[in-house]
Amino acid sequence: MKHLRQLEDQSVYILREAYKNFDNLGMLWSMGKDSTVLLWLARKAFFGQVPFPLLHVDTSYKIPAMIEYRDRIAREWRLDLVVGQNKEALAAGMNHTLGRVACCTALKTNGLKQLIEQKGYTGIILGVRADEEGTRAKERYFSPRDKHGDWDFRDQPPELWDQFKTTFPPGTHIRIHPLLDWTEINIWEYIKYENIPFMDLYLDKGDGTRYRSLGCAPCTTPIKSTAKTVDEIIAELRQTTVAERAGRAQDEGRGMELLRKDGYM
């Protein structure tokens, strides 16, 4: 499992650079497998501590089991959990039937932007991976966002060796991506290797389906799978040629490029 340790060393280095250079730092946690591995890596980096708040942008449409899991882990690991929500949009009745990009923009992108503005975060750590979809493949480890939270992918800063962009003009913030080099298989291998607690929605519990990627209930569909253990998930992923986010509706067409340009995760 040498390759997992190599990935871990790089992610831990990035997390420590983030902690050293940003006074007001937060880590997004969606309770999915990736951001939970990220959270675990933070405990690795800081020797059991998580010295910054965990942020959850709650769309109110999450699968209820996810919220139970969130609160249990937060208690057991003594996490500083901050929950943000775009209440105005929800009060105005925003939901996925009004358009998936519109819904994601309002409840996730804008929910996150509101949280960043309220709390004044200058650094946000996220668990996005390069192999998830095309625009994420082009991300930097330290990726600046302008005053509106937008991503200027045409003019990304150089990233040389282990030197990252850690200074930025006031009013802007930096997105930090320690998991860029990890693949979906790596995530599961690491969960097994480190014995990290994860949600059993990822496993088949007898009906021949499981979730491969977790999001809001209306826009995430389970896949056909009989994988009942992490080993079986890994074996399945080694054989599959179906994209991980095939069950995620917002990825259709150019959805993701438009979303991410405007500051989506």
Binding site: A130, D131, G134, T135, A137, K138, D181, T183, E257
Partner: peptide, 21 residues
């Protein structure tokens, strides 16, 4: 296949590096 940005495909050039696995 890997020039993910619309602009890249329209201009037929790669603007930024992509990590692929």
């Amino acid at each position: 296949l890997f020039d993910a940005f619309l602009e890249e495909q329209e201009q037929g050039i790669t603007i930024d590096t992509a990590r692929t696995f």
